[in-house]
Simulated scan of single mutants.
Amino acid sequence: MTNQETVSVLNDLLNITMDRIKGFNKVEEKVWDTHSYLKNDYEEMVAESEQMKADLINCITEHGGEYDDSPTVSGTVHRAWIDVKNAFTPNNAESTLENVVFGEKSAIAAYQEALQGDQLSPESILLVQDQHQKLQNSYAKFQSLEN
């Protein structure tokens, strides 16, 4: 593993984190009219995502890399699909929250893939493991929406 490989993987995770942040911005206040019990968890996830972003950027620069905080193409397409879907089913809080769950599952899978590879430096493995655990914890709070 080289610094360049580590930086590449960390940038991929940063892009996914940016997707997560942009996706959270799609959740509108109307959702909390029917799911107020999730609002605090959601706000915690938003703050956590911002911290994850900052930590990834720091790790990338510590490895001599330049960070790329642009969202992924698939994330952009997914958010566009959400916009179209919401245009035809306005005020559908369940659909909006299902998209949060979908995004969390996708992020968890990406982190698992990064951890299974051999491209992360020992220092970055600890960061990625910590962030992976945070994603799993937040997913668990919203997982009941899938059932």
Rank of each mutant, 00 (worst) to 15 (best):
A87Y: 12
M18P: 01
V84W: 08
D83R: 07
G23C: 04
I21G: 08
G65Y: 07
R20A: 13
F24A: 05
N86K: 11
I57Y: 03
S74L: 09
G75I: 06
E66C: 02
Y37L: 01
E28D: 15
D33E: 14
G23I: 04
S49P: 01
T34H: 13
D69K: 13
H63C: 07
H35L: 04
E29K: 14
C59G: 08
M18D: 04
V31T: 02
E43N: 15
Y67Q: 11
C59V: 03
E48G: 05
K26I: 00
T72Q: 02
A80E: 06
N58A: 14
Y67T: 04
T34L: 08
W32K: 06
I60E: 04
K39H: 11
K39L: 03
V27P: 03
R20H: 14
H78F: 14
K30I: 03
D41P: 01
K85R: 14
V27I: 15
Y42G: 00
H35Q: 05
H63R: 10
K22P: 00
E29Q: 10
K85Q: 13
A47W: 02
N86E: 12
V84K: 10
E62D: 11
I21P: 03
F24N: 14
S70A: 13
R79W: 05
D69L: 03
K53R: 15
N25C: 08
V73M: 11
L38M: 10
D55N: 13
R20C: 02
K85F: 12
V73H: 06
H78I: 01
V77R: 05
Y37M: 02
N58Y: 10
N25M: 14
I60F: 11
M45Y: 08
D33P: 00
T61I: 12
S74K: 12
A54R: 12
I82L: 10
E44Y: 11
E44P: 00
D69T: 02
D68K: 11
M52I: 08
D69S: 14
P71C: 03
I57H: 06
T61D: 03
V46S: 05
G65P: 03
H35Y: 15
A80H: 05
E28W: 06
A80K: 10
I21H: 13
H35F: 15
I82P: 00
D69C: 06
V46A: 06
M52S: 11
D68F: 07
K85N: 12
H35R: 09
H63F: 07
K26Q: 13
S36R: 13
N58Q: 12
P71D: 04
V73C: 02
E62V: 01
Q51H: 07
I82Q: 09
S70D: 11
H35W: 09
T61K: 14
W81H: 10
N58F: 08
H78C: 00
D33A: 11
C59Q: 15
